[in-house]
Write a protein that binds this DNA or RNA. Structure first.
Lengths: 158, 158
DNA sequence: TCCCATTGCATAGATTTCTAAGTAATTCCT
DNA sequence: AGGAATTACTTAGAAATCTATGCAATGGGA
């Protein structure tokens, strides 16, 4: 029979229930948010993939694709695909920059600008629904903790 | 000029920075967890999509596909795709049930069972890295809050 | 000036996930 | 017993995301 410490370690690894795993809790919450967001923006003809880009463009219209990718936190090929669908849906125009012909400036159409307030309200409503019944102090603590987790993980390379 | 309350409401909707949105914070954290998990399990020949199913099967070997879908929290077509790739990788066998020939029982191979402890250790390490430097009480509060948010959102139909 | 490294975007191909609709086995009701 | 409803899985097709690679415009150094 192994010594107590070895046994404890073994049990510790063998049992790792999802309820105790921050990663699982975060995943579940993320899926719940996504699901609701998707349902509520589809009626506006906006997909979840377009949403993140719209959100940045509403405050930073005219960014280049590279800047946009960085702000949204997506890889550039993802941006290409999202922008293509947004162009098809009449949400943006792409304009080759004159001073540097490699760059493409992304510009919102009037249609996209008109959607802004209503869609931001949708996002805020979902947040309010998620936070219902949660103490303000707990909420503030939650934000600090989850931001810290993200920062912790982002510092790790491999 | 609109009355103060109307103005406050308008500003409230017009400005909704991601830093204050639980949804965005959750999304960022989720992506950080995913990124690291994916990097660390790829060397074992396991993809992120297979991971969730392995994790359930390690404690509930022999479930049917439907039960598995429910436990993992994925739609059934997603399960079909994941299981197909797991079968190709030699992680599972699928066995048509004899008492009900509609059902397919999913069984782990010896290879998948051998991976269990090492991969669970990977998950635990990531959790520990994410939680580094966070107060135990804050962590407990975090788990309550995020589980409550998920529950809140899951109650909403549309 | 001309070559080459860098920069900005695009393509290719894979994976993960969904919704909607199909097929086959089982069960239930008359 | 036979048809209808239900159950379990599958297929089809779309979307969102990634890594790896390609191409074209730019700029810097010999």
């Amino acid at each position: 029979m192994p010594p107590p410490s070895a046994k404890a370690k073994s049990v510790r690894v063998l049992e790792f229930p999802p309820r105790l795993s921050s990663g699982y809790l975060v995943r579940d919450a993320h899926r719940a948010f996504q699901r609701l967001l998707e349902r509520r923006i589809t009626p506006y003809g906006v997909t979840r993939g377009q949403w993140y880009f719209l959100r940045v463009l509403w405050t930073h219209d005219g960014l280049s694709q590279r800047e946009l990718s960085a702000r949204v936190g997506m890889m550039e090929p993802t941006t290409v695909i999202a922008l293509r669908s947004m162009e098809r849906s009449g949400l943006i125009h792409r304009l080759r920059s004159d001073d540097d012909r490699r760059k493409v400036r992304v510009l919102l159409t009037a249609k996209a600008k008109r959607l802004r307030n209503e869609l931001l309200a949708v996002a805020r409503t979902i947040t309010e629904e998620a936070e219902a019944g949660i103490d303000m102090r707990d909420l503030a603590s939650f934000r600090r903790v989850i931001a810290r987790m993200t920062a912790n993980l982002d510092l790790i390379e491999r």
